Amino acid sequence: MSVEEALATYGPSEITRADVLEVEDPNYRPGNVALVTGAAGGIGRATALCLAGNGLTVAGVDVDEEGLAEARDRADDLDLPGRIEPVPADLTDEAAIERAVEEAAKLGDLRYLANIAGLQTIAPIAEFPVEKYDLMHDVMQRAPLLLTKAAWPHFEETGAGVVGNMCSVHGHIVTKEKVAYNTVKFGLRGLTQSIAAEGEGSIRGFSVSTGYVKTELVAKQLPDSADSRGLTVDETVEQVMLGHTRVKEMMEPYEVGNLFVQGFSKHASHLNGGDMTHDGGMSLTYE
């Protein structure tokens, strides 16, 4: 199966208004701002659209300016009650992170932060490229801390704030050849709990842990992953990715975005330091 065929079969569906979970919350209005990283594509883009679909102004942060513009245009095409404002930024640059938070705060009251941007490198520990580990750590663990640090005064000024961190089933259980990914995802759960410990109830933190999601990044990796195992792409999905789950299909990005909608809302006021595990039973059951 070619990359194009894998994308057609296992890539994400285009999000529609009907896909967006709409939650009644008086704080879900255009005057309140959610900063979403990785907003140019994948789960970040879907989360940005789902939050805009609930009336929030979304500061979409990514290095991919073209992708951010496409996300903004999609929100406009769907005639969402909120909007996406592109905020290009390099999450490996501390000054750029601070500027992104300040730009988000200029759009309204900054109340929500979704740390979603991520990347992957697959290699055994003995051969793992340290520069890739450093990059993954900078984007997926250091940046969420710096973003939280920069947003904290704005949360205090607003009177409340919520940080949602995109974790993973690999923040609970690990698989081989993903040492950097496993490490940073476990670290994100520590950050989440630290936010809860210091937020005194007015600033909450939660994480979201899913199994495999139908993103372009995952779909594009499937042919190489299948070849390395001597399997077809379909066999790789069925045996490797979904072999240990009870739900035998991957999640759509908008389904993950809807978890952030729920987690940020007033209906999740007691979700503080905890993890929203939606992995199809992968980490919680066995045969």
Score class of each variant (00 low, 15 high):
Tyr10Pro: 02
Gly263Phe: 02
Val247Glu: 06
Leu35Cys: 05
Val63Thr: 14
Cys167Arg: 05
Tyr286Glu: 12
Arg83Met: 09
Gly42Lys: 12
Lys106Trp: 06
Ala48Cys: 10
Ile15Val: 15
Gly44Ile: 03
Leu242Cys: 11
Met140Gly: 03
Val163Cys: 02
Leu145Ala: 14
Leu7Cys: 12
Asp109Ser: 12
Asn32Phe: 05
Glu249Gly: 08
Ala151His: 08
Thr37Pro: 05
Ser209Gln: 09
Gly60Trp: 06
Ser202Met: 13
Phe128Arg: 04
Ser194Gly: 13
Asn182Ile: 10
Met251Glu: 07
Arg204Ala: 02
Glu5Phe: 06
Lys149Arg: 15
Phe206Glu: 02
Val240Tyr: 08
His244Ile: 06
Gly108Gln: 02
Leu68Gly: 04
Thr245Cys: 01
Asn258Tyr: 03
Ala96Asn: 07
Phe264Cys: 04
Ser265Val: 09
Val163Ala: 04
Pro30Asp: 01
Ala48Glu: 01
Asn182Cys: 14
Gln239Tyr: 07
Val58Ser: 01
Ala114Leu: 11
Val213Ser: 03
Val174Lys: 09
Asp64Phe: 07
Val208Ser: 00
Gly161Ser: 10
Asp79Asn: 13
Asp224Ile: 09
Gly187Met: 10
Tyr254Asp: 00
Leu110Met: 09
Gly53His: 11
Met140Asp: 01
Leu284Pro: 00
Ser207Lys: 09
Ala6Val: 04
Cys167Ala: 15
Val240Ser: 04
Thr210Arg: 03
Glu102Arg: 15
Ile195Arg: 10
Ala219Gly: 11
Arg17Met: 04
Arg142Gly: 07
Pro253Lys: 10
Leu231Arg: 14
